[in-house]
Deep mutational scan, measured.
Amino acid sequence: MMITLRKLPLAVAVAAGVMSAQAMAVDFHGYARSGIGWTGSGGEQQCFQTTGAQSKYRLGNECETYAELKLGQEVWKEGDKSFYFDTNVAYSVAQQNDWEATDPAFREANVQGKNLIEWLPGSTIWAGKRFYQRHDVHMIDFYYWDISGPGAGLENIDVGFGKLSLAATRSSEAGGSSSFASNNIYDYTNETANDVFDVRLAQMEINPGGTLELGVDYGRANLRDNYRLVDGASKDGWLFTAEHTQSVLKGFNKFVVQYATDSMTSQGKGLSQGSGVAFDNEKFAYNINNNGHMLRILDHGAISMGDNWDMMYVGMYQDINWDNDNGTKWWTVGIRPMYKWTPIMSTVMEIGYDNVESQRTGDKNNQYKITLAQQWQAGDSIWSRPAIRVFATYAKWDEKWGYDYTGNADNNANFGKAVPADFNGGSFGRGDSDEWTFGAQMEIWW
């Protein structure tokens, strides 16, 4: 008995050590931004985005507190085989008060198993909700290839000249389909599951310092038995992507060409959309029709120009041509140079221009935006974070068209359509004006 009692403290210590080691193995990653800002004409900070554009130049032009908190852990490992559990909870508030209630979004919860298939060394099996191989332009917060959501897949299969990845994910639309009631009355209240099937071939070395990635995505509306879509709904579509990445000037340049059809055009990033119906009456549900095509040509990157200068840049042309004439032509160009006074202090400027032409009206909206920021960051790279910055932003815009969301679809035949700025004596778009804002912001990723 005495021997047992003497061994007990040692056993407890060993158990505590094991539990401590396991606790220390938890990975904590994430992203956050928050700050305070004012508008020159009075009131809180207002942000500037061109009507019809899918993004905006973000430096000194973000008006919310946003965070993603990721917890993950390698829960099992034997040799080169392992299982990893990953989670991500995100939230966004308007940064107007101390207490701002919000419903967090559970954006990731997945398990990734590496090297589980003997004859596919280096590959990963995964299932669950996941940010899946996302491609974006940081300076405009624009995701041009992103099929994230609940799904499953097999990735990084070594095929000799590259890595092959296969995945299936889902994005549902509210009110996407109906069941038959009586007297030809349909009640569009059932969600429609939109499935996306993704095939990618990446890391193909085609020139010194250059790699090529090719991808095909097929999206479709997956209806339940005895349900139907509204007439004209976009049932399926394709997205084709080619991306060349070149190492240059201690950074990279990415050149991207994408072509999409029908349900893959509205978001243009790989998620299927077009079966959703915002109104019970299918007579007024025309606005979900996105049959047509999209072409996107994009070049972006980040480079170092000597010891003291870094720069991000982007140039993009996007043409969404829809059968219902509600598409757009959008082109944007911008730069973000950074001058480093010390390894932790810099001055950053961002200059961006957007131009969006309405397919329906032929009119154009444009905006110039310039931001000057003094910044303190954890390192001497344009990617170094955390960063604390004080900024001043000036924007000038001239908008000739907007979307008509007055009333509702039952009493407005133009609901959701592009109209000229002065349509029917109204005021659509943001008109011709300018404004400036100033404030302070922190940004961090880890």
Results as ranks from 00 to 15, higher is better:
1 M>L: 13
2 M>I: 09
4 T>S: 13
5 L>Q: 04
8 L>I: 12
10 L>P: 10
11 A>T: 01
11 A>E: 12
13 A>P: 05
14 V>D: 01
16 A>V: 07
18 V>E: 06
19 M>I: 09
21 A>S: 09
25 A>V: 02
26 V>F: 07
26 V>A: 00
27 D>Y: 06
28 F>I: 04
29 H>R: 10
30 G>D: 00
31 Y>F: 07
32 A>T: 02
35 G>D: 01
39 T>A: 04
40 G>D: 04
40 G>V: 09
41 S>R: 09
42 G>S: 04
42 G>C: 09
43 G>R: 00
44 E>K: 01
47 C>G: 11
48 F>V: 12
48 F>I: 14
48 F>S: 14
51 T>I: 05
52 G>A: 07
52 G>V: 11
52 G>C: 02
53 A>S: 12
55 S>I: 10
57 Y>S: 15
57 Y>N: 12
59 L>R: 15
61 N>T: 14
61 N>S: 10
61 N>K: 12
61 N>I: 13
63 C>F: 15
63 C>Y: 07
63 C>W: 15
63 C>S: 11
64 E>D: 13
65 T>S: 15
65 T>I: 15
65 T>P: 12
67 A>D: 14
67 A>V: 03
67 A>S: 11
71 L>M: 12
72 G>S: 02
72 G>V: 03
74 E>D: 11
75 V>M: 11
76 W>R: 09
77 K>N: 09
79 G>V: 08
79 G>C: 11
79 G>S: 14
80 D>V: 12
81 K>E: 02
81 K>M: 05
84 Y>C: 09
85 F>Y: 09
86 D>Y: 11
86 D>E: 08
87 T>S: 08
90 A>T: 03
91 Y>F: 15
91 Y>H: 14
95 Q>P: 11
95 Q>K: 15
96 Q>H: 05
97 N>D: 14
98 D>V: 04
101 A>V: 08
101 A>D: 14
102 T>P: 15
102 T>I: 09
103 D>V: 07
104 P>L: 10
106 F>L: 14
106 F>I: 09
106 F>C: 14
108 E>D: 10
109 A>E: 14
110 N>K: 15
112 Q>H: 05
113 G>D: 02
114 K>I: 06
115 N>H: 14
115 N>Y: 11
117 I>L: 13
122 G>D: 11
124 T>A: 15
125 I>V: 10
128 G>C: 11
129 K>R: 01
130 R>S: 09
131 F>I: 01
133 Q>P: 15
134 R>L: 06
134 R>P: 09
134 R>H: 03
137 V>D: 08
137 V>A: 10
137 V>I: 08
138 H>N: 13
139 M>I: 12
142 F>L: 09
143 Y>H: 14
144 Y>F: 14
145 W>L: 12
146 D>Y: 12
148 S>Y: 14
149 G>S: 08
150 P>S: 15
151 G>V: 15
152 A>V: 10
154 L>P: 06
156 N>Y: 15
157 I>F: 15
158 D>E: 15
159 V>I: 13
161 F>C: 15
162 G>D: 03
162 G>C: 12
163 K>T: 15
167 A>T: 02
168 A>V: 04
168 A>E: 15
169 T>I: 06
170 R>S: 11
172 S>Y: 06
173 E>D: 11
175 G>A: 12
175 G>S: 04
176 G>V: 04
177 S>Y: 02
181 A>D: 11
183 N>K: 06
186 Y>H: 03
187 D>V: 02
188 Y>C: 01
189 T>S: 09
191 E>A: 06
191 E>G: 08
193 A>E: 10
193 A>S: 10
194 N>T: 09
194 N>K: 10
195 D>E: 12
199 V>A: 03
200 R>C: 01
200 R>H: 01
201 L>V: 13
202 A>S: 15
207 N>T: 10
208 P>R: 06
211 T>I: 12
211 T>R: 14
215 G>R: 11
217 D>N: 02
219 G>C: 02
221 A>P: 03
222 N>I: 04
222 N>K: 04
223 L>M: 08
224 R>L: 06
224 R>P: 07
227 Y>H: 10
228 R>C: 08
228 R>L: 08
229 L>P: 03
230 V>D: 12
233 A>E: 14
235 K>R: 10
235 K>N: 07
235 K>Q: 15
236 D>E: 09
237 G>S: 00
238 W>C: 08
241 T>S: 13
245 T>N: 05
245 T>S: 09
246 Q>R: 00
246 Q>K: 05
248 V>I: 03
248 V>D: 01
249 L>Q: 08
250 K>Q: 13
251 G>D: 00
252 F>S: 00
252 F>V: 09
254 K>N: 09
254 K>M: 00
255 F>L: 11
255 F>Y: 01
255 F>V: 09
256 V>D: 00
256 V>L: 07
257 V>D: 00
259 Y>S: 15
259 Y>N: 05
260 A>T: 01
260 A>D: 00
261 T>N: 13
262 D>V: 00
262 D>N: 06
264 M>T: 02
264 M>K: 02
268 G>S: 02
268 G>D: 00
270 G>W: 01
275 S>Y: 00
277 V>F: 02
277 V>D: 05
279 F>I: 07
279 F>L: 05
280 D>E: 09
280 D>Y: 12
282 E>D: 12
283 K>E: 14
285 A>P: 14
285 A>T: 09
288 I>V: 08
288 I>N: 04
290 N>K: 06
292 G>C: 05
292 G>D: 00
292 G>V: 10
293 H>Y: 01
293 H>Q: 13
294 M>I: 06
295 L>P: 00
295 L>M: 06
296 R>S: 05
300 H>N: 03
301 G>S: 00
304 S>P: 05
304 S>T: 11
306 G>S: 04
307 D>V: 07
308 N>I: 01
309 W>R: 00
310 D>G: 06
310 D>V: 00
311 M>T: 00
313 Y>N: 00
314 V>A: 01
314 V>L: 06
315 G>S: 00
317 Y>N: 01
318 Q>E: 01
320 I>S: 12
320 I>T: 05
320 I>N: 08
322 W>L: 10
324 N>S: 02
325 D>V: 09
330 W>G: 05
330 W>R: 03
332 T>S: 12
333 V>A: 07
333 V>G: 05
334 G>C: 02
334 G>S: 01
335 I>F: 04
337 P>Q: 06
338 M>I: 06
338 M>K: 11
339 Y>N: 10
339 Y>C: 01
341 W>G: 06
342 T>A: 00
342 T>P: 04
343 P>R: 11
344 I>N: 09
344 I>L: 12
345 M>K: 15
345 M>L: 02
345 M>V: 01
347 T>I: 00
347 T>P: 08
350 E>D: 08
350 E>K: 00
351 I>L: 07
351 I>N: 00
351 I>V: 02
351 I>F: 10
352 G>V: 05
353 Y>S: 14
357 E>D: 10
358 S>Y: 11
360 R>S: 11
362 G>C: 05
363 D>N: 11
365 N>I: 07
367 Q>H: 07
369 K>N: 01
369 K>R: 04
371 T>P: 15
372 L>F: 06
374 Q>E: 07
377 Q>E: 13
377 Q>P: 07
377 Q>K: 13
378 A>S: 08
380 D>A: 04
382 I>N: 12
383 W>C: 12
385 R>L: 10
387 A>S: 12
388 I>F: 14
390 V>G: 09
391 F>C: 00
393 T>N: 00
395 A>T: 02
398 D>E: 11
399 E>V: 02
400 K>T: 07
401 W>R: 01
402 G>V: 06
402 G>C: 07
403 Y>D: 11
406 T>S: 12
406 T>P: 08
406 T>I: 02
408 N>I: 12
409 A>P: 12
409 A>T: 02
411 N>T: 14
411 N>K: 07
411 N>I: 09
412 N>I: 02
412 N>K: 08
413 A>T: 09
415 F>L: 07
417 K>E: 03
418 A>S: 14
420 P>L: 14
420 P>H: 10
421 A>T: 10
421 A>S: 13
423 F>I: 01
424 N>S: 10
427 S>N: 09
427 S>R: 15
428 F>L: 07
430 R>S: 12
430 R>L: 10
431 G>S: 13
432 D>A: 09
433 S>I: 08
434 D>E: 15
435 E>V: 01
436 W>C: 14
437 T>S: 14
437 T>I: 12
437 T>P: 13
438 F>C: 15
442 M>R: 14
443 E>D: 06
